[in-house]
Simulated assay, not measured.
Amino acid sequence: MTSGIKDTTHAFEAAALMGLFPGRPRLLALGEPTHEEDVLLDLRNELFRQLVEQEGYRTIALESDCMMGLVVDDYVTSGTGTLDEVMERGISHGWGASAGNRELVRWMRAHNDGRPASEQVRFAGADGPLEITHAASPRQALTALHGYLASWVEANLLPCTADTLGRLLGADERWTDPDVMMDPTRSVGRSAEARDLRLLADDLVALLDAQTPRLIAVSSRDDWDRARLYGRTAVGLLRYHFWMADTSPARMARLMGARGSMIAANLLAVAERGPALAHAHNRHLQRERSTMRMGDLPLEWWSSGAIVGAHLGEEYAFVATALGTIPHRGVGAPPPDTVEGLLYAFPEERYLVDARRLAAALGDAPPAPRVSPWFGYFPLDPAHLAENDGIVYVKDVVRS
């Protein structure tokens, strides 16, 4: 068995990874089983550099606020701002403080310096403007979309004025109240104002679509593309707030699904530009249906990767990352009867695994699922190995 598994492994490098796919994926998704580990971010950075230099990839999308990501993209493409400012304002969840993310942005800016736009690498946030405790106000996205349209479209075609949007939005604190997550009755997501805003957002997005030929001609494709980002973010946030106000047992599954749909829409938009690397949690990028329990309540929703994969087919590839140990989190050596344990037996510190060949080598009876002693690490699901295109295995995650 061990020799058969060994035959599925390769050195971790872009060329070996691309050899797992029938063709160059338009969207190559690299998942991680936990966050905030620079060892994993260094691995991601190395892969992205190789994909850019050897395979013609031009965009990286991270699990970070899509609106904030525009700050990073402006910096790496035109040098707007300073690296310190960009890391504070351009990456959400506090991950701008990460050394690995800082090095990624620094390298992208250095790579782009002096290159024409057609050869530059781009940055995108794939997530919505969401946190665990709350969601952002739709103000930024809605007003940016309205402002773009107002600059290029006849005023009588606009469904409302900027003042009307401001009146309906009210104070941002109404939208971002962290108590709403535990008490849906505090949400403004189903208020009369929110209902009007959803209709107006729909009308603004429809106007953007209807005026596409003119808008690309008089502004630019990049500006139009940003306006599309504003539109899908505004619509997605208003939908998310609507479900935050729900009091039914379906509430959390609806919220998970709404976030998954927002990430999927952003990833599909990124893929339109050409070959791109996406980096987010394994659970976001996996092809199978997502499940979890909240107390006694089972939740199910389609992951972002499942949605993107349904759209792109073989042009979507998913490579999960699996870990052996995380000593500083109390995660010790994996049991030998788990997938992680079987892979831990090999001496290499990191390597690439052909997931489908591994599943075939393991036979009809999958290994035991690993159980993590730490809630922040999600082991592989052995029942779904063959739904991954590859696995990156990191034996020990050690902080320096």
Results as ranks from 00 to 15, higher is better:
L158Q: 12
G324H: 09
L40F: 05
A206T: 06
F346W: 06
A269E: 12
Y377I: 04
L83E: 14
E288C: 00
G295E: 01
H311F: 02
D337I: 06
Q54F: 00
T8H: 03
L51A: 10
A365Q: 15
D364W: 03
A29S: 14
H241F: 07
E85Q: 09
A271V: 08
G114R: 08
K395F: 03
M67Y: 15
T164C: 02
L199R: 06
P213H: 08
R102F: 09
G170N: 11
A14S: 12
G114Q: 12
F242K: 11
R195H: 11
G79D: 09
R399C: 03
G56L: 12
Q286M: 09
T338Q: 03
N282W: 07
D113V: 01
Q211P: 00
L62S: 00
W302G: 11
I391V: 03
T9I: 01
A258V: 11
D203W: 00
K6G: 07
G390V: 03
A135S: 13
H134N: 09
G94N: 15
T34L: 02
P382Y: 05
R106L: 08
E119D: 14
A194V: 08
M294H: 14
T161P: 05
Y148M: 02
G260K: 01
D177S: 10
L297S: 06
S303P: 13
A126G: 09
G56E: 15
D396E: 14
S261H: 12
A227N: 09
H311C: 12
Q286K: 15
V71F: 08
P116N: 05
S92W: 02
G341R: 14
G363R: 15
L43D: 13
S98D: 02
P336N: 11
A15E: 12
G19L: 07
S187Y: 06
S304F: 08
P347S: 14
V121M: 04
P159C: 09
D127M: 07
L20I: 02
P184Y: 10
P298S: 06
H93D: 04
R357E: 15
L342R: 15
R399E: 10
H241T: 12
A360E: 11
E300I: 03
H281Y: 04
S303V: 07
N101D: 03
V121G: 02
R24W: 00
A135L: 05
L51F: 08
H281S: 08
R195Q: 13
S191G: 12
H311E: 07
T176R: 14
Y75P: 05
G81L: 03
P334S: 10
R58H: 12
D84Q: 07
E131I: 12
P379M: 13
G125E: 02
L30M: 14
T59A: 13
A276D: 01
M182P: 11
T2K: 15
D389C: 12
S92C: 06
T291F: 12
T59S: 11
T80G: 05
P347C: 10
A265Y: 00
E300S: 11
F21W: 09
G125V: 04
A271N: 13
D42N: 14
V371A: 06
T82G: 02
V218G: 00
S400F: 14
A171W: 10
T185P: 04
L83S: 14
L352N: 09
R356H: 06
G128R: 14
S137R: 03
L157V: 09
A310E: 05
